[in-house]
Design a protein around this nucleic acid. Structure first.
Lengths: 154, 154
DNA sequence: ACTCACTACATGACACATCATGCAATTTTC
DNA sequence: GAAAATTGCATGATGTGTCATGTAGTGAGT
């Protein structure tokens, strides 16, 4: 017997789906139009920028992003073609590949970050009271914990 | 001067992004594995199933889904190739295209819906108190309203 | 040292999404 | 009622994501 969703649950669920879809769409367009990079590009560039020496092993980058390995490999190949990152051999493990920011990559992330953060602030946090920010933080925390428990048991 | 995010805001933002990404991933895999359809397929099939006569004009389907027109056109072309939907000429507007569920499409959505809803319930709403469901509903509502206002003003 | 399992990464195929563009049918405007 | 603007949809190019698979390097057990 299927336990269907109540009206309020449906409202919350569809709201969540619509909200994130539209936010991603708006933020992606802004990055693409103003800086010529995609949201995934931004994520990768950000991690590399924060890393010591602006460089990371693909393995660690993947762990940090929680991306599938294949996705990261394709993404890095594309970014390498566009000159945003550069590939280096790993010295301690000949299988490994470390990637570092190119000057172009560094320029891109440094220029893109303020506008991106500003957009997130305007579109999201300017609409929320401090209590609501806490609520949102708690909600996502609870749900992510529950999700990982479910998958772990699953 | 960039207004950066506080620690709690960062927590909430990254939590929201991670949560929806992982939820979509899990739900998509479940639909694909158990019923051979994607999340976008599910959305389209659901709208068609709810429509009178299991049929809708592409235009109305697009409005209902809030999808870009080109996205819908490609999606419907793929679903038509796989025999999930069928195309008909529109009688009142010769430009128009109406799409209806095929028997295979009807079977797919009818079989997939209970498991999908059950997964949403288990992964999301089983973790939330009634107050939290209300919070989530209110939050998404506020944010979507704010988002549309922001885009409307531009 | 040799086998065997595992890890790190790449690649090709295909579904998905957006953009730019095209075109025919409809509506508006005069 | 003809020209102009708009609407409804399709299509090709390209970037993105997943799956299945391949390959080379590493490490553990013997």
């Amino acid at each position: 017997m299927t336990r269907w969703l109540t009206t309020e649950e449906q409202q919350a669920w569809r709201g969540l789906i619509n909200l994130t879809a539209q936010l991603q769409s708006v933020l992606a367009r802004q990055l693409q139009d103003e800086h010529g990079i995609s949201l995934p590009d931004y994520e990768v560039l950000g991690r590399l920028h924060d890393a010591p020496g602006h460089r990371l092993r693909a393995r660690d980058l993947g762990t940090s992003l929680a991306w599938e390995q294949s996705r990261l490999s394709h993404q890095l190949a594309r970014m390498q073609r566009r000159g945003l990152v550069a590939r280096e051999e790993c010295e301690t493990d000949r299988r490994g590949a470390t990637f570092c920011l190119t000057p172009a990559g560094r320029t891109a992330i440094v220029h893109a970050a303020p506008g991106h953060v500003e957009a997130v602030r305007r579109l999201v946090f300017d609409a929320l009271s401090p209590e609501q920010v806490t609520q949102l933080s708690d909600l996502t925390d609870d749900l992510l914990t529950h999700l990982h428990d479910s998958l772990g048991m699953g």
